[in-house]
Structures are given as C-alpha cells and as structure tokens.
Simulated scan of single mutants.
Amino acid sequence: MELKLVEILVNKYLEGTSSIAEEKQLKAYFSSNEIASHLVQYKPLFSYFENQKEERFTKALPLQTKKQSYVKWIGVAAAIVVLFGTINYFYNENSKQDLGTYSSPEEAFVGTQKALEMLSEEVNHGVEGVSILKEYEKTKKTIFK
C-alpha cells in the first residue's frame, strides 16, 4: 500500500470519517511487517483487535447464585407473617366487646342528639367555606370578563 494513502486513511480514521473498508485496509497494513517508521506509533491501535481475537475466557462461571436460598426464606417468612396477622385479626374481631349500646332508650336518645349536633356543627363549618369559594368565583368572573 502506498505511504500517502496510508497517511490519508490514518487521518480519516482519527477524524472519525473513515469507512469500514478503509479501516480493514489499515488493519491489514499495520498487521504486516513493513510499516513506515513515523507510523509505528499507530500499530498498537490497529493490532489490538487482532490480539483480542486470540484471547479466550477461561474462568469458570458459577451456575447458581446464592440469592435463591434467601428468596425462599423471605417467602416463607412473609407467609408466616400473613398467617399470624390473619389469625390475630379474626381473634380480635371475635373478642371485641359491644361498646355501642345503651342500657336505656333515654340515654341512647341523648347520645344520638350529641352526635348529630357535632355533625351539624361540622357541616355548617363546611358550608361557610363553600360560601367563601362562591364569593371568590364571583370576583374572578368580574375581573376576567
């Protein structure tokens, strides 16, 4: 290969504009023994791929990971927690005392009146908030007309 052509191809390669065919020509040139003295510095760049083709991976890979045993135990622990939680829930549901009853109708009536009065106060408080929003909407409509 001509020296000028090699220099042009090396420049194109370093700029990132070379084609695959041109890169193959460069690899062939740098794998030969006849390299110009000022281009010897580029030989490792192009001979690297040839050296890597000969390298083989010889390390043994483990087939099973140790995480599988942990996953099994985590699943068993989760199942036990769910089982105890379910048993505890049903046990507590059956042992609850009936706390919402009154012994006489008069007491029940007074308790109901108190509860309805509290509910009425909260509803009235909410209605006041809605009236403020209605006033805001009126003002907004007059401003953005």
Results as ranks from 00 to 15, higher is better:
Gln52Asn: 02
Lys53Leu: 13
Glu55Thr: 03
Phe57Asn: 11
Thr58Val: 06
Ala60Asn: 02
Pro62Lys: 00
Gln64His: 03
Lys66Met: 14
Lys66Ser: 08
Lys67Leu: 02
Ser69Ala: 15
Tyr70Asn: 05
Val71Pro: 00
Val71Ser: 04
Trp73Val: 06
Trp73Asn: 02
Trp73His: 00
Val76Lys: 01
Ala78His: 05
Ala78Phe: 10
Ala79Asn: 02
Ile80Gln: 10
Ile80His: 09
Val82His: 09
Leu83Gln: 14
Gly85Lys: 01
Thr86Ser: 14
Ile87Cys: 02
Ile87Phe: 04
Tyr89Ile: 07
Asn92Ser: 14
Asn94Asp: 13
Asn94His: 10
Ser95Val: 06
Lys96Asp: 07
Lys96Met: 11
Lys96Ser: 07
Lys96Ala: 07
Leu99Asn: 12
Gly100Trp: 12
Thr101Gln: 13
Tyr102Trp: 07
Ser103Ala: 13
Glu106Gly: 08
Glu106Asn: 07
Glu106Gln: 13
Glu107Phe: 09
Glu107Ser: 04
Ala108Thr: 00
Ala108Ser: 05
Phe109His: 11
Val110Asp: 06
Gly111Tyr: 02
Thr112Gln: 11
Lys114Trp: 01
Lys114Pro: 04
Leu116His: 07
Glu117Phe: 09
Met118Glu: 13
Ser120Arg: 13
Glu121Arg: 14
Glu122Tyr: 08
Glu122Met: 13
Val123Gly: 01
His125Gly: 10
His125Gln: 11
Gly126Pro: 02
Val130Asp: 03
Ser131Trp: 13
Ser131Phe: 15
Ser131Pro: 05
Leu133Cys: 01
Leu133Met: 09
Glu135Ile: 14
Glu135Gln: 03
Glu135Val: 08
Tyr136Leu: 13
Tyr136Cys: 14
Tyr136Met: 15
Tyr136Trp: 15
Lys138Leu: 15
